[in-house]
C-alpha cells in the first residue's frame, strides 16, 4: 500500500505504475469473486436440477422407443414427427394454444380495468385491493381449483343463484368443459396480468391525461390516443406472461376440464404415468419449451419497449 502510494506520487499524474496496476487488478478480481460467491448457490442449483435433466430430456427425445437399450440418434425426428403429424396430438397442441389465447384475452379484459382502478385509486383503496390480490396468490392453486368445482357444479353457487333469480330453468354445465377450464385458468392467472399492467400504469403521470383533456380529447379519445398506448407495454408484458404460463397448465384443465380440454401438459403426464413413453413425452415437452422460449424473447423485447417510454 505504502509503496504504491509513494511511487504514484512520483509518477506523472493519471498514469498508474506497475505496482498500482497489480494492486488494482487484485482489487477488481476480489470484487468479482465476491459477487460470484453470491450467485454461486443459485447457479449450482439450476445447473444440477434444471440444466442436466433438460439435457437428458433433450437426448431422450431423439431416442427410439422400441429398443430396450435407448439409443440416441440425432438424425431421427420420429418423436417430433409423431407429435406434429398425428391428428389427435395436433388437436391437443392446437387446443393448448386456443385455450391459452382465450385465457389471455379473458385476463386482459378483466385485468386492464382492475389495474386502472389500482393505479388511479387513493392510497388506502390501492393498498386494500393489492392485499386482496396478493392474498389470493397465497392459497394453493390446487385448493382454489377444487373450490371452483364446488362453485360451478350442477348444484353449485352459480347455478343455484341463477335458478333462484329465475334466469335459468335447469342447471348450466359450467364445469368439466372448456368453460370450467377457462374460469379456473383466468382466476389463477389474473394477478399475473394485473401486476405488470398496474406497474406500467402507475408510471404514467397524471399530466398526460390532463393535457389530453385540455387539448380537446373527451374521456374515451384521451384513453384511446394517450393512456392506452402508454399502458400497452404493460399489457404486452402481462399478456405474454399469462400466455406462456397458460401453455404449460396442467392441474386446472385436469380438474375442471372435460376430455376434449386436455392440454399438452396433460398428455405429457399421460405418456409418462400410464404409457411409460418417456421419449415421446420428452419430445412434447421440448416443443413446449421451444415455443415458450420464443415467446419469452418477445416478452423481453416488450420490457425494453417499456424502457423506451421511460426516457422522457
Amino acid at each position: 500500500m505504502l509503496a504504491a502510494e509513494t511511487t504514484s506520487f512520483k509518477s506523472p499524474p493519471g498514469k498508474a505504475t506497475r505496482t498500482e496496476e497489480n494492486l488494482f487488478r487484485w482489487l477488481r478480481i476480489r470484487k468479482q469473486l465476491f459477487f460470484v460467491s453470491l450467485v454461486a448457490p443459485a447457479v449450482l442449483f439450476v445447473v444440477i436440477f434444471l440444466a442436466v435433466p433438460l439435457w437428458r430430456m433433450f437426448l431422450l427425445s431423439f431416442g427410439s422407443a422400441d429398443s430396450i437399450a435407448v439409443t440416441y440418434d440425432f438424425e431421427t425426428l420420429d418423436q417430433y414427427g409423431r407429435a406434429l403429424a398425428t391428428p389427435p396430438y395436433q388437436r391437443v397442441i392446437l387446443n393448448t394454444f386456443w385455450i391459452s389465447i382465450l385465457t389471455t384475452v379473458g385476463c386482459v379484459l378483466a385485468g386492464y380495468p382492475t389495474a386502472y382502478v389500482l393505479a388511479t385509486a387513493s392510497d388506502t383503496v390501492r393498498r386494500a385491493l393489492l392485499a386482496v390480490l396478493i392474498m389470493t396468490m397465497w392459497t394453493s392453486i390446487l385448493i382454489r381449483t377444487f373450490a371452483w368445482r364446488v362453485i360451478l357444479g350442477r348444484r353449485g353457487l352459480v347455478n343455484e343463484t341463477l335458478e333462484w333469480i329465475g334466469v335459468i330453468d335447469g342447471p348450466l354445465s359450467l364445469v368439466f368443459n372448456t368453460t370450467g377450464t377457462m374460469v379456473g385458468m383466468i382466476h389463477i392467472l389474473l394477478p399475473l396480468l394485473i401486476l405488470p399492467v398496474f406497474a406500467v400504469m402507475r408510471e404514467i403521470p397524471r399530466e398526460y391525461m390532463l393535457a389530453a383533456a385540455n387539448l380537446g380529447a373527451g374521456p374515451f379519445r384521451a384513453w384511446w390516443r394517450v393512456y392506452l398506448p402508454l399502458s400497452l407495454p404493460g399489457v404486452g408484458a402481462g399478456a405474454l406472461l399469462v400466455f406462456i404460463l397458460s401453455l404449460g397448465f396442467f392441474i386446472t384443465p385436469a380438474i375442471l376440464g372435460g376430455a376434449s380440454d386436455r392440454m399438452i401438459s396433460n398428455i405429457i403426464a399421460l405418456q409418462i404415468n400410464e404409457l411409460n413413453n418417456w421419449e415421446f413425452a420428452s419430445a412434447l415437452a421440448f416443443l413446449l419449451l421451444i415455443v415458450t422460449l420464443a415467446l419469452y424473447i418477445l416478452y423481453a423485447r416488450f420490457m425494453s419497449f417499456e424502457q423506451l417510454y421511460r426516457s422522457r
Binding site: P205, E207, Y208, L210, A211, A212, V226, P229, L230, Y309, R312
Partner: peptide, 10 residues
C-alpha cells in the same frame, strides 16, 4: 403548458 410532462412521449 405544464412544468413537466407536457408532451406525449409516444
Amino acid at each position: 403548458v405544464f412544468q413537466h410532462y407536457s408532451l406525449f412521449p409516444h
